[in-house]
Design a protein around this nucleic acid. Sequence first.
RNA 1: GGACCCGUAGCUCAGUUUGGUUAGAGCGCUUCCUUGACAUGGAAGAGGUCAGAGGUUCGAGUCCUCUCGGGUCCACCA
Length: 878
Amino acid sequence: MPDIAPRYTPTEIEEKRLKLWDEKKPFHAHAGAHTKGPYTIVIPPPNVTGVLHMGHALNNTLQDILIRYKRMQGFDALWMPGTDHAGIATQNVVEKQLVKEGLSREILGREKFMERLWDWKKHHGDTIINQLHKLGSSCDWDRTRFTMDDDYSHAVVEVFVTLYERGLIYQGSYIINWCPRCQTALADEEAEHKDAQGNLWHIKYPLKNDPSNFVVVATTRPETMLGDTAVAVNPKDERYTHLIGKTIVLPLINREITIIADDFVDREFGSGAVKVTPAHDPNDFAMGRRHNLEFINVMHPNGIMNHNAGSFNSLDRFEARQQIVKALEEQGLLLKIEPHSHAVRRCYRCDTIVEPYLSKQWFVKMKPLADKALKAFHDGDLRIQPKRWEKVYENWLVDIRDWCISRQIWWGHRIPVWYDEHGNHFVARSEVDAKAQAKARHGKDVMLKQDPDVLDTWFSSWLWPFATLGWPNTSADLKYFYPTATLFTAPEIIFFWVARMVMAGIEFMGEVPFKDVILHGTVRDAKGRKMSKSLGNAIDPLEIIKEYGADALRFSMILNSGQDIYISKEKFEIGRNFTNKLWNASRFVMMNLKSEAKIDDFSQIDLKNLDTASLWIISRYQTALTDVTKALEEFRYSDAENTLYEFFWATYCDWYLEMIKGRQDDINTQKTAYLVLKNTLKILHPFIPFVTEELFSYLDGKETLLTLEPWPLIETRYINTAAQSDIGTIVELLTAVRNVRAQWNIKPNEPVECVIITSESARACIKANEAMIQRLVKIAAIKYESSAEGIKNSATGVIGEIKFFIPLGTLIDVAKEKARISAEIAQMEKSASAIEGRLANEGFVQKAPTDVIEKERMRMQELKTSATALKKALECLV
RNA sequence: GGACCCGUAGCUCAGUUUGGUUAGAGCGCUUCCUUGACAUGGAAGAGGUCAGAGGUUCGAGUCCUCUCGGGUCCACCA
């Protein structure tokens, strides 16, 4: 192996690593390869239309950290990758292309259009997968699935048919959310509420028998009045009781409608009378059913008024609105226009205002599914983090409404339903099955036509955790790797995806699809705005990778992640600087490293002859490892990185490597520096996989696939414990400094660095005064042994022994130092008297718990003695 | 209209669950330093009425109420 290159070039080494990983396939998971069992996660499948954005980068980095960690722990760690066909989104993209060519899907016809879509998928659909790959995601790439793969589609059909057979899928005419631009039905979740400034138009509806009298109705959508088939009032509303049953002549088209009474009507709102348009409003639809009203549809699916609109036929719905208002005004039927802000539903894909529209669609009956998902949650089969999202999940399931799953587009899973010429439907797994059913029904072969619609995208994604493993076929993999362990995703899709996956998992696998759901924040710019292309504030992850490296991208992002993540380009310098530091420190350790120093285990270090700084770093390393492991177990990745950043940079580099300069010939020191670095690289690997593996391979002297290396063991014997105080040690320590100065001939104003090993009892006291002592004598590190046995194992075997080495050249200003210490003494005395005051307070003594009082008393004692000791210490400074 | 989250140093956040040391960290900033691992570096330092008001308490960043500011999710009053 050649030496580590003097300069760190992320792009180069990342390419090299990716190539190696593609070749060796270390991410491939075999059922039963390891004793620890399976650990599965599935990727939230990105859309095939997508290009990598920061949200993906975050989501996938989190998953990669988890799965690499689990792999190193010895699990059969499977990360299932794949993409979603994203029905409407993808169809829109291709339709836009067609427009450029002067074509449309109607011109092309279904078959040709589908070809174009598959073509598009083939050439662009894997873009995002390649980009995730670049990020270092350790997915089992050979298993990459697509929601429209043959076997996956098979699963979708199976689910549809099974649910139908279980009575959980039905067809019906209802008011659904209709996007006039995409010309398809949308689920409730796909029609987003957005506030809009509109008007409330108050319109006079004349009575038939008394045309000079009116009922006033208010509406935000005047164009729908053409489809009115009643006016409703509250039965308890005295203003109107005499009018119930009377006839009204609907203005503009002079159709006669009746005044009905319905409890739904709010007497307080508007005029207290409501126009009823059963074909264009969900409430009115319900009223229409209750009162057997006529359903008059006044619009074409594209939002253009139809023949029922009389003279407004062929106008766009918003144009019609204006014309109608104008006409009403001219006829003196417009009472007033009131500004009114309300929420309007818009298509989540194209932002077009959604029209409540009456049509025949397929629905999933959600209540029975939701109840099971709720029960699983209440039974603790499912945990959601952060906890505040639990309620969101719960509420949605409690108030759940049926799910409209048919879409009037072509890109997607065709609904497995066939119709005969009478309109009877046959739900079947295949056309052959459907034909057989029809034959049984009619006693002869009949012509069947398949439903032209396709299924909602989420009707396939909700099967993702098990359909990717081959369901409905029972494979060994499915049995072994299901259920998955943890799901990392964005809170936006709790309803769309998470809750529905839980339902499908329980319904078809009899088990929740994952134990833990971790919902992470949104990536925002420095000003807190969502990153989006349209705002122009998006930072392209690929650009960051190119400039700083994927490791830097990953590291910076996770380090920055709080609830939401605020990112600007400069933030990525932290990651770049850190990886660069890692590189240089490794170079330093490798300089003049003897080959026998290349060890794998701490037991190969002769602790008895080890310098104290090395003992200290081993202990600090063990502490860091413990903290990081704990943080990883609790999904606190930002904390884990912080610990590592601190440990490696501030502790290992700034202190330890500086301290051992000059004694690097010592084989034990070399061993320690080497092994601690090597293990730190391991611990850092899940976070920054490229640079750690590259450096590890240099250190190891051979190509190593770090993700297959075992996670380092926590060796508690190297970890120090806390204890009580022994103020004498400080005095002893400071006196010793004087002696050492004399012995080593160091000038009085020249500070020295030292590491001490001391008894457990001195810890608290030294700890409390560490800052001051460091200034005074530069205590680099303190090693504590907590028991007699520990002391026996320690390098010196002597309690309270103080070792000094490495005089520093930096001068300090003694007078300034004295002033500082005096200030500290004053501070301590102040604190002590504050506690004294508290202890003198009757209320405190009477009401505070005794252990608190005891603690306070001890603290005051400590402060007092510390202050005394420091006063003595001042005398040391000549 | 309902529910939730956030407000702590110039910036990003810990700390609040269970009230009890002198409220912490990183970045940034200031000053100084560098000829051999690293200026993508090293050392030292300044910087906070814990959004505001009131309450509970011997004691509040932490618990309660309200106000202000920022954000998110849900929602069929036309």
